[in-house]
Every structure is written in structure tokens, then in C-alpha cells.
Write a protein that binds this DNA or RNA. Structure first.
Length: 916
RNA sequence: GCGGACGUGGCGGAACCGGUAGACGCAACGGACUUAAAAUCCGUUGGGCGAAAGCCCGUGUGGGUUCGAGUCCCACCGUCCGCACCA
């Protein structure tokens, strides 16, 4: 019997699928549609094991749904614009386009080797003008509908690289690449008006439209959108106070707690509030204070540690409800970016206000009385009270509950004409301008007379100009210093004008690619009929790291495209699954350099030769001179079984020889290493395994199987060599079982069981079908795999079973493994003599009659402890079960000398006898 | 600080609506095959006592509800994730 050889078998079936066009999707027909999508990859050059896990999950769903009779769409593309290509150009002198397309070519080859059921005829790359021309058209339509607009906004400007940085690219106030201190600049930027949709984006999270999304993602989006209802109002200046010119009207604040207005003891504005800026012009001390505030980083610890600080301004405001006068501060904890950049401070009801009040000796009048507290004795000490209660010390609000008082206060302020109830969102409009070359050009022309003018539709696409690869080593945007491209005539008045040189944020590219997949070759962004047929995506799968931005942008884009008449849905992804990462132990030397896992050798404590042991000890002693901690940690480490002791590695240069266990050591070959924490695989820590190497050794099926076994899909999975080997063993066992039953399906008639068909094996078969089906439906791939193992174990032990029952089992087995190990499944199907391709075969159906059992085994408890088992008829009545249980010898022994008080019989579950 | 998730053998993890805790895999150990090794196959494997039957203990800690708790409730400890001076 030949050994299973994935190196020959896998490419063979990949080619057959391609020839058959097995996965090319056509809209229409009688079958219900099913759109499966995994988040498309960035073409970095290599697929990594995380991709394997992501796409293996999608492929299980796609193949399963196809077998269940759905018309499945399962496409793939490339998120191909972005900064890494420009960085590569800088380092290697290769043009970003060449670099990107080379990577796409390489990764496509690797992906194809995984045997995914992908419709490659729909492949797209976002850097392809055939893709981004439609994106430009969408932009123009959004602009015409005022969904896109231009405004001045503050940006992080890197003065060395001459570019705008995203917040994540600013580290400790410095540019991530140049290290130069980042400046704040006002720049005209393009925005998508996503805040207009904030309410609907929020509402859909809870009204059932996103019922198929994980709770944590919905929660993250809810927090990100951050809706708060409150009151926006003015505090008038107190009599005798002289506010600066232009601010006579008062200070506008926002609050969610207008019920606590009587607890106000100060007003505070942000350091970059216009009022503060105005006063700073003539107040050097204030200038210094503001500069100080801006120095404090925005990092977590900085905020945590930063003390509340304020600078008192030389005037006071009044209070809307009484004749109090409130001091006004510039305070470091007030943010300009939220609300109006000004607050009223209520120390009894807000922890920050309380800390501030304590520091500056301000009053802390309590205004909310917790239920059950005595108003005469209730005081605020170190903690503000933010809970529910009754309002007191508050004039006309006294006696109201918090909710009622909020409304009453808003009504009163509106009556007085000082403000109005208002809803605020944390969400900001989406700034999409990037000062980069390798992105989708924004189709706008700037004219001195006409302002920003849309590029006429007939002139689309605005193609990226050819630039020399050397351009990327020069700071700034190559588009900005490309006169032939940049200088054009105004399409409106014909005067000399300039192209917009910013390109779009790459999140724009990924905000609608799933729509384009529905009609990837149309002359417009999407054909509505096709979009309506395929959308929404029925199952979207990807990393939780995209829980907020990508998913939010895609949700908004879908609404915007609907507004432009391209689609009918407003939510793009009906079901979302966020899968966990692949993690791996890290390894490092005494110098702290990281080492590839494949270069690490493990030595058993008691197997290592004397010579090697001696060498290692000497080496450690030598290292201990400078790295005493290293030696200490090294000697402490063992693996989880406590067996391994010595570790070393072969250097990356390949020059050092691989040492073998017990080989005599002639000279030092390698270095001792430390095993570090198990972390997300990353290039920088070198804790990566190459899917290509795995596929070389074990084949794609083994890699796919292992990635889905053991850990639940939403959780992180640790890559281990032993794990793939286990998967490899399974493949061998299945192949054994199948190849010894060659042609078993040729004479097999599933409709006519033979008279002697083995009941036990049949039951195992149908239980496996029912279980695996249920598990795949519920994204429990690890359990589905466990059931297949169980089934296979039964099958392998069923020597006595007749040919018919075995054929039924094998027929089911080949189809049950098909979503997980598709190549092996095809090979088995063919060997067994199945009809056509297994990827076209229908999913096996479980026969409910076989799942029902005549007799069942029930556990019998005495006082809650299991003492015996009893076999009874499945339909036995309670009294019969009770009597049978009571007559058991083991039960009698345990209730000897006691009185039976009660007997609990849960049909099909358990018997419990209570006695004392 | 706020919000959320989680805590089960040596390890990854099963255990449906409260009903036999540890499915399945890995590792380990014993055995078969082999000149030998690898591969493969068979068996054992939560801890303790015991020759065995069996008994006791056991799901982070302490309490509670229940005939019965890994599962529900309360308090605490710990880990992870998201947001973070959002008024």
C-alpha cells in the first residue's frame, strides 16, 4: 500500500478543480446564495501561518455551504496600497508597484498551494487602476452628495519626512520613522462625513441588523461611536468681570449631568481653548502653563500619573440658577477635542473635578443623595458619588431622581435661553488625506479662482504618474514635486491649477472591496443587480484587530454607496467571526537577539553528552562575567515536562554545524538560548514558522487540519511541531482505512442497507454526521475535528462490521473531512469509487432513526454522589427507573440504615436518591 | 479608572438549558514490530489509599442557592482584551 504523498496528490487535485472551474460563482439559479469572505491580505511577500488559519476557516465554511446546496461566492484579493511598499522602495530601490506586484505573484502561488476553494476569476488588487478608478468615481459622487468635504484640521506633521502622521505613528511625541518631534499643523484635508451616520451606525448594533456579530466587537464599536446625551449651555460672566474681547457672551460648556448644576464650583477650559489662546497673548505665565500641558504625552501612563493642574483666569462667571460666582481655570484635564472644550466642575459628582477642587481648595457641595443616606451626615471624602439617588441642596431640582432632574434642568436652561439639550458623539469624521505616493489619487483639482474642483468623469482615472524609485528616499510626497502631473488646467475656468497631491487612506480601499467582488469586471463600481444578489456578505472572517476602524468604515461606505444607488443593503456583513492569532514561543541569546524556532535544538537533561555539558557549563561561566542574570535564568529553565534542560541554536548564517544529541563536542558550535514568552508571531521576534516549509514536509491538508484542531477558532492557538505531526498521523490513518477499501462505493447503494448491516457502526456514522454538521454550523471546528477522530477510531475498530455499513461509513468520512482536508478527501473519494469530485458531492445526511437509542445508561446517585449505573429502556417510565435504581446492590449498600426521603428521576439524564 | 471576557490534568482543550468532569489531540510511560533507529500499531495515563472490589479528594479562593454546581448568585484573587482625563 503506497504511503500518502501530499506533494504529488495536492497539486493534482488543485489542477483538477481549476480545470473543472469548480469554484467559479455565477449569480442566479435556484440555489440560495452564500457569500463567504476572509479579510483580504496585504501583499507583504509571504503568507504566514496566521493567513493559513484565517483562510482555512473560510474555506471550511465555503466548502461546507457548497455541499449543503448553496450557491457560494468565495473570492480573494489584495489590499495592495500602503506605506510598506514605499519603505521597501527606500530600502531596495524597487518601485512600489513592482515590489507589490512581485509580492502578489509570490503570495498567490503560496495561497494556491493551500487548496482553497476560491473563485480566482474575481481576483482584484486595490492598486490596480481598474479598481481605483471606480473608487475615484465613488469619491466624486460622495463629494457631490456632500458625503465628502474638505476642511482645515489639525494634523501631526513630521517636519523631517514632510508628511502627516497618523496618531499611531507618533511615539512619545516623535515621528516613528524620523524621530523628529512632531508638530501640530493646520492643513486642508479631505473628510468623509461619517458622523452624520453615527446614529444609524449605532442603532444597527442593537436592533438586530448585526445579530451575527460577536458582542465584544459590537461593544467596541459602540464605545468608539460614543454617544452621550446632555446639555450644551452658556455660563454668563459675573457682574464686574471683564472678559476679553470676542468672548463677552460667556463660556459654552457641555455636560451629561445638568442635574448636578447646583453642585458647580468652578469652570474650566482646555489649554488649547480659544479663550486660553487669546489670554495667553498677553500673559506669559499662562503661555508657559499651556506649553507645559502640551508637553505631557498622550500615553496611558502619562495620563494616569498627570496631576490635575489649573491656571486661574482673572474673571468669574455667574451661575444660571443662583447668585454664586464661579472661578474660571485653564485645566490640563479638559480636552479641546470633545464637546466645547469647556466644562463646569461639579466636584461631588466627578472624580476629576473632585481632585481638582481638593487641590485648589474649592467647595465640594454634594447634590446627589444616595438612597438610604442621611442628608445631614452625607459628605464626599475621597471619592465622588456618581451613582443614582435623589437630588438635594439644589433649589427647584430637590427631591427629583437623577433622570428626572436631568430633564428638568435641560427644560429650565432652554426656557432661560442659555442652551439646549444636545447629543454628542465621540466619533469624528474620517480624515482620508495622506501625503503619500502609493495610494489612490484623490480626483480633485485646486484652482485659485474656483477652489477645489472635481476631476470630470471623462478624465478618470487619475493615474499615478511614473516616478523613479529613488524618489522615495527623498522626504515628502513625490506627487507634490512632479510638475507635469501636478500642474493642470482648471476643468471649470481653464486657468492654471494644481492637482490634489494627497492620496486616499488605504482604509478607503478596503471599505468596499467586498462590493466590487460581486461584479469585478463591470464598467462602474458595481452592477446593482449583482450587488443585490450577492450582498450582504453572509460570513466575514478576520482578525479582531480590525474590530473598530475597518469594520466601521466598511459599514459607513455601504450606507454611502446605498445613498448613491449602488446597493440595497446598509449593513455589509451579516455574520462576523473574529479568529484568534497564531502564537509561538520566542527564543533569544544572551545578547538579546532573537532566534528562529527552526534553528533551536532541544537537549534532554540526561541525554546530553558529558563533553557538551561541560562545554555548556564553561560557556555559561564565560557569559556569566557579563550576563549573570542570563546564566541564572538559563539554568532554571525546563520545558513544561521538566525534561529539557539545555538548549542551543544554530546561527542564521548556516555556517555553524548542527550538533547532534550525544555527539562529542570538539569545539563550541552554538550558543545557549533562553526561551521567552509565547507571543504573536512577528518577524521582529523571529518566532515565525514558514507555511511553505510545513507544506513541503506535511502538505497543506496537515497544516489546515492542525490550525483548526485543538483550540477554539476565536482563541489564540500555539503553533507546535508536535501538533502538525499529529495532523500528519491522522492523514496517514485515514488513508490506511480508505486504501484498504478500494472501490467500496462502486457497488454501494446508500438506499438499501443489507439485512446484516452493523447497527453500532451505522450509529457511529450518523452520530458523526450530525455532530460535525452541528459543529461547523456553530464555528466549533476544534470539536468537529475531535468528532472525526472519534468516528475514525470507531471505524478502525469495527473489523467485524459488514461491507455495507463500512461503505456507508467511508462514504460519510470522505465527505466529512472534505472541508478540512480537501485534497485527501478527493483522493479518498476517487479511491473509494465515489461519483465525480467530492467538492461537488452533497453533504451527508444523518438519519434521525439511527440516532435514537432503544436503551440508555443512566448514572445513579445517592445523595448527589455517583454510585452506580443502570441500563434502562429509553422510554421507561419514572417509576420503573426508580424501582430498578433502588434495587441495585451498590445503591442498597449506600442507603443501608437510612430512610429514602426522595427520589429524583430526570428522564434520559440521571437518577438521584436522597436518603438520611 | 471604565467596559468586557476568562480561570478545568503535564499541555491545548471537551462537558448543550444545572444532571456520569476531563471527549479529542499532544506529551509521557509500558508493550509489539525491527539487527537497530525512525515510522507504525496496541495499551496505560487527574491526585491519594488499596492486591482487588472499592473508597476519599478534585474545575482559582471563600461563602450561598439546589436532590444535584465547572455551569447560577455574592465576595475576593489572578490573567487577557478594548477604551481611556469623553465632562
Amino acid at each position: 500500500m503506497p504511503r500518502y504523498n501530499p506533494k504529488e496528490i495536492e497539486p493534482k487535485w488543485q489542477e483538477r478543480w481549476r480545470m473543472a472551474g469548480a469554484f467559479e460563482a455565477q449569480p442566479g439559479g435556484d440555489k440560495p446564495k452564500y457569500y463567504v469572505l476572509e479579510m483580504f491580505p496585504y501583499p507583504s511577500g509571504h503568507i504566514h501561518i496566521g493567513h493559513v488559519r484565517n483562510y482555512a476557516m473560510g474555506d471550511v465554511v465555503a466548502r461546507y455551504k457548497k455541499a449543503r446546496g448553496f450557491n457560494v461566492l468565495h473570492p480573494m484579493g489584495w489590499d495592495a496600497f500602503g506605506l510598506p511598499a514605499e519603505n521597501a522602495a527606500m530600502q531596495t530601490g524597487k518601485h512600489p508597484r513592482d515590489w507589490t506586484y512581485d509580492n502578489i505573484g509570490a503570495m498567490k502561488e503560496q495561497l494556491k498551494k493551500m487548496g482553497l476553494s476560491i473563485d480566482w476569476s474575481r481576483e482584484l488588487a486595490t492598486c490596480d487602476p481598474q479598481y481605483y478608478r471606480h473608487q475615484q468615481r465613488l469619491f466624486l459622487e460622495f463629494w457631490a452628495k456632500d458625503l465628502a468635504y474638505r476642511k482645515e484640521s489639525d494634523v501631526n506633521w513630521d517636519p523631517v519626512d514632510q508628511t502627516v502622521l497618523a496618531n499611531e505613528q507618533v511615539i512619545d511625541g516623535k515621528g516613528w520613522r524620523s524621530g523628529a518631534p512632531v508638530e501640530r499643523r493646520k492643513l486642508s484635508q479631505w473628510f468623509f462625513r461619517i458622523t452624520d451616520a453615527a446614529d444609524d451606525l449605532l442603532a444597527a448594533l442593537d436592533d438586530g441588523r448585526l445579530a451575527g456579530w460577536p458582542d465584544n466587537v459590537r461593544l467596541m464599536q459602540r464605545n468608539w461611536i460614543g454617544k452621550s446625551k446632555g446639555l450644551q449651555m452658556k455660563f454668563r460672566f459675573a457682574e464686574g468681570t471683564k472678559p476679553p474681547t470676542g468672548f463677552e457672551d460667556g463660556i459654552e460648556i457641555f455636560t451629561t449631568r445638568p442635574d448636578t448644576l447646583f453642585g458647580a464650583s468652578f469652570i474650566a477650559v482646555a489649554p488649547d481653548h480659544p479663550l486660553a489662546s487669546k489670554l495667553a497673548e498677553t500673559d506669559a505665565e499662562l503661555r508657559a502653563f499651556i506649553a507645559d500641558c502640551q508637553k505631557i504625552g498622550t500615553s496611558e501612563e502619562a495620563i494616569e500619573k498627570a496631576e490635575k493642574q489649573g491656571y486661574q483666569l482673572p474673571f468669574e462667571t455667574g451661575h444660571p440658577f443662583d447668585d454664586r460666582r464661579l472661578p474660571v481655570y485653564v485645566a490640563n484635564f479638559v480636552l479641546m477635542g470633545y464637546g466645547t472644550g469647556a466644562i463646569f466642575g461639579c466636584p461631588s459628582g466627578d472624580q476629576r473635578d473632585l481632585e481638582f477642587a481638593r487641590k485648589y481648595g474649592l467647595a465640594v457641595p454634594p447634590v446627589v443623595l444616595p438612597t438610604g443616606e442621611d442628608p445631614a451626615t452625607f459628605v464626599i471624602e475621597d471619592e465622588a458619588y456618581v451613582g443614582p439617588g435623589t437630588i438635594f441642596n439644589s433649589g427647584f431640582l430637590n427631591g427629583l431622581a437623577v433622570d428626572e432632574a436631568i430633564q428638568a434642568a435641560i427644560n429650565k436652561i432652554e426656557e432661560m435661553g442659555l442652551g439646549e439639550g444636545k447629543t454628542l458623539f465621540r466619533l469624528r469624521d474620517w480624515g482620508l488625506s495622506r501625503q503619500r505616493y502609493w495610494g489612490c489619487p484623490i480626483p480633485a483639482i485646486h484652482c485659485d479662482k474656483c477652489g477645489a474642483v472635481p476631476v470630470p468623469a471623462k478624465d478618470l482615472p487619475v493615474l499615478l504618474p511614473e516616478v523613479d524609485a529613488r524618489e522615495f528616499s527623498i522626504p515628502g510626497n513625490p506627487l507634490d514635486r512632479h510638475p507635469e502631473w501636478k500642474n493642470v488646467d482648471c476643468p471649470k475656468c481653464g486657468a492654471a491649477a494644481r492637482r490634489e497631491t494627497d492620496t486616499m487612506d488605504t482604509f478607503v480601499d478596503s471599505a468596499w472591496y467586498f462590493v466590487r467582488f460581486a461584479a469585478p469586471h463591470e464598467e462602474k463600481p458595481v452592477e446593482k443587480d449583482k450587488a443585490d444578489y450577492w450582498l450582504p456578505v453572509d460570513q466575514y472572517i478576520g482578525g479582531v484587530e480590525h474590530a473598530i476602524l475597518h469594520l466601521l468604515y466598511a459599514r459607513w461606505f455601504t450606507r454611502a454607496m446605498k445613498a448613491c444607488g449602488y446597493l440595497s443593503v446598509d449593513e455589509p456583513f451579516a455574520d462576523l467571526f473574529t479568529q484568534g492569532m497564531v502564537i509561538h514561543a520566542t527564543y533569544r541569546t544572551h545578547l538579546g537577539t532573537w532566534v528562529l524556532p527552526e534553528n533551536v535544538k532541544f537537549f534532554y537533561k540526561d541525554q546530553v553528552s558529558e563533553a557538551r555539558r561541560k562545554w555548556l557549563v564553561d560557556e555559561l561561566d564565560r557569559l556569566a562575567d557579563d550576563h549573570s542574570r542570563f546564566k541564572e535564568e538559563y539554568l532554571k529553565q525546563t520545558d513544561s515536562t521538566g525534561q529539557y534542560y539545555f538548549y542551543d541554536y544554530v546561527s542564521d548564517d548556516g555556517k555553524t554545524r548542527v550538533s547532534e544529541i550525544n555527539s562529542p563536542v570538539v569545539e563550541p558550535l552554538s550558543n545557549p538560548i533562553l526561551i521567552g514568552p509565547i507571543e504573536k508571531m512577528s518577524k521582529s521576534k523571529k518566532n515565525v514558522v514558514s507555511p511553505e516549509r510545513i507544506a513541503e514536509t506535511y502538505g497543506a491538508d496537515a497544516a489546515r487540519w492542525f490550525m483548526l484542531s485543538d483550540s477554539p477558532p476565536e482563541r489564540d492557538v500555539e503553533w507546535t511541531d508536535a501538533g502538525v505531526e499529529g495532523a500528519w498521523r491522522l492523514i496517514g490513518r485515514i488513508w490506511d482505512a480508505v486504501s484498504s477499501a478500494k472501490g467500496a462505493l462502486e457497488t454501494f447503494d446508500p438506499e438499501r442497507p443489507t439485512a446484516d448491516a452493523d447497527e453500532d457502526l451505522r450509529r457511529a456514522t450518523h452520530e458523526a454526521i450530525a455532530g460535525v454538521t452541528d459543529d461547523i454550523e456553530n464555528f466549533r471546528f476544534n470539536k468537529a475535528i475531535a468528532r472525526i477522530y472519534e468516528f475514525l477510531n470507531t471505524l478502525r475498530k469495527s473489523d467485524g462490521a459488514d461491507g455495507w455499513a463500512r461503505a456507508e461509513a467511508l462514504s460519510a468520512l470522505a465527505r466529512l473531512i472534505a472541508p478540512f482536508t480537501p485534497h485527501l478527501a478527493e483522493e479518498c473519494w476517487e479511491t473509494l469509487g465515489g461519483n465525480g469530485l467530492v467538492c461537488d458531492a452533497p453533504w451527508p445526511a444523518a438519519d434521525p432513526a439511527l440516532l435514537a437509542k432503544d436503551t440508555i445508561v443512566l448514572p445513579v446517585q445517592v445523595n448527589g454522589k455517583r454510585r452506580a449505573e443502570i441500563e434502562v429502556a429509553a422510554n421507561a417510565d419514572k417509576a420503573a427507573v426508580e424501582n430498578a435504581a433502588l434495587s441495585l446492590e451498590a445503591v442498597q449498600r449506600h442507603i443501608a440504615g437510612m430512610t429514602v426521603r426522595k427520589t429524583v428521576v430526570v428522564p434520559g439524564r440521571i437518577v438521584n436518591i436522597v436518603a438520611n
